[in-house]
Design a binder for these strands. Structure first.
Lengths: 222, 222
DNA sequence: AATAGATTTTATCAAGTGATAAATTAAAAA
DNA sequence: TTTTTAATTTATCACTTGATAAAATCTATT
């Protein structure tokens, strides 16, 4: 089925495979997606892919290289854009919610268990540069300009914390919850809500004052 | 290599298989763990397991039934124990950190993609009763007694939020981070830190006051 | 048109996968 | 001891997996 009238230039086919593989890998995980599924969804037979990628692992690596590169550009753009720290955090979260529908831990597990150690380290460095460090830079800026307090978490743990919160959206799990949770909430609202919890917490004002007092009693310096 | 001198009573073998399978499934995911791995790690041959479980899915279901049952008891025990909401939240988080080393999203994905729909719903209800609802009950209590504010998140989304924060611990990913993150932090410290961020947020005092003012201007009733 | 090179398909492999049947052994009942 | 039942192993199946070889097809250049 399908001889193209105008040969798609090789690069087109290659990036089509990458895009197809991206969607499948992110949804089902590395192990569960077969090379035949990727090929078929790309309109090819399975062995054809081996003309473009040495093996399944090389394809997966290319998928991650592509997505982390795009993300890095977008994230740094947001960090360098105007506005308060809170506003930019919301933008970051909204971006991640939009372009990373499935969670990061799947990716991390695939990397840990299915890839060669050299590939692992490579991907981790890409992931740090695209996700972790831009977010951490924003937290550091906030701690320096005084809009964020530095006592609780350093910038990088803060970034980890934010990322972990994002990956699973409340109510996404599709379960029949007792009350009406999981209604269609716009991404912007979702992002703002997430950031506000992260910044201001869930405690009431009285609780917070009490906490502050205790902190000034037996506190730490380092 | 083993013929037992005193027949282990069937139930022992069965629960040994469940425990072995639990560890493997939680570390590698449903798809990646083979029935032969489970059998071998349990000291059996692969077909022997089929004497105890109808198939791989039935075994996985039993694993989850067991772990959610244990968790439900422990979690409800903590919720009903004494202390402030914050103290009990810390206990809950510490328990989860201790007894759920690998993250929940792996489990959720396995359920979504590898199990029959009936099994899915069954497991989801177990998971809700053991994890979600006990935590939500605690949040609800906090909102009612005034130690938690109700405006931002309802109890159940709050519980989702907390669970999502727990599953990935900062610095756990084993990556070579720029600065010294991921040092061995005791579980209790980790749990307290997580809960404090959740309750009190990362914003500074000035930032918070500004936020509160805006909230009282264009706010919502429902 | 003829050649050369890139792309894609057909056919196939070896290694695993979950699962079943039949034979074997262990333990308990008679 | 013999019989019966539970537990386990050996052998095997049908199927899927990632990967390779060789043939076929396309594209462009000469």
């Amino acid at each position: 089925m399908g001889r193209r009238k105008k040969q798609p230039l090789d690069e087109e086919t290659r990036s089509l495979i990458i895009k197809t593989a991206h969607d499948l890998f992110m949804e089902h995980g590395y192990r569960s997606v077969t090379t035949r599924q990727i090929a078929e969804a790309s309109g090819l037979t399975q062995p054809a892919m081996y003309h473009y990628f040495a093996d399944k692992e090389a394809l997966y690596t290319e998928v991650l290289r592509t997505v982390t590169e795009e993300t890095k550009i977008a994230m740094n753009g947001i960090v360098l854009s105007g506005g308060t720290v809170r506003e930019r955090l919301i933008k970051l979260v909204a971006y991640i919610l939009l372009y990373m529908p499935d969670d990061l831990s799947q990716m991390e597990r695939d990397i840990r268990h299915e890839l060669r150690p050299e590939t692992q380290q490579l991907i981790r460095s890409w992931w740090q540069e695209s996700y972790l460090l831009p977010i951490a830079a924003l937290f550091e800026e906030g701690q320096k300009n005084g809009s964020l307090r530095g006592g609780l978490l350093e910038p990088i743990p803060s970034a980890f914390f934010l990322l972990s919160v994002i990956q699973r959206k409340p109510g996404r799990s599709g379960s029949p919850l007792p009350k009406g949770i999981g209604n269609p909430v716009p991404v912007e609202v979702m992002a703002a809500r997430t950031v506000d919890v992260l910044l201001f917490g869930l405690a009431s004002e009285e609780e917070r004052l009490q906490y502050e007092n205790n902190e000034n009693k037996g506190d730490e310096k380092a």
